[in-house]
Amino acid sequence: MEIKELKRTNDLLTATLSGRMDAITATEFTNQLESWITENQKSFTIDCSQLDYISSAGLRAILMVAKKVRGLDGKLQLAALQESVQTVFEISGFDKIIPIFANLDDAAAQ
């Protein structure tokens, strides 16, 4: 799994997430997001087009960060989920609590 900053515009940080987000790698996501939060970033859009796999450990990491930024009046939104990842989100009801967009442009329009 790899998470890389793409750009910062105003208060929004856009990053790309790639590879597998599982029980071994999910903490890398949490650590990186928490590190950005300590730099006073509160809102994030994550491009998931290269994210091939997510398990409950990954969902847990996303939920933790989403709660944390909501508590700071920020937001965590995702874009361009692959079909298998989208399925896991929908079955878990995460599509109702995390804003998901078809692509980065749609996410930026919010």
């Binding site: 409950s56 939920l63 709660k67 079955i91 109702k96 609590i97």
Partner: peptide, 17 residues
């Protein structure tokens, strides 16, 4: 699965999946 973001418990999803 219907809980709002801040009420959603961390965990419990693995067995459900």
């Amino acid at each position: 699965l219907e809980a709002e973001l801040m009420e959603r418990p961390i965990g419990g999803l693995g067995i459900f999946l």
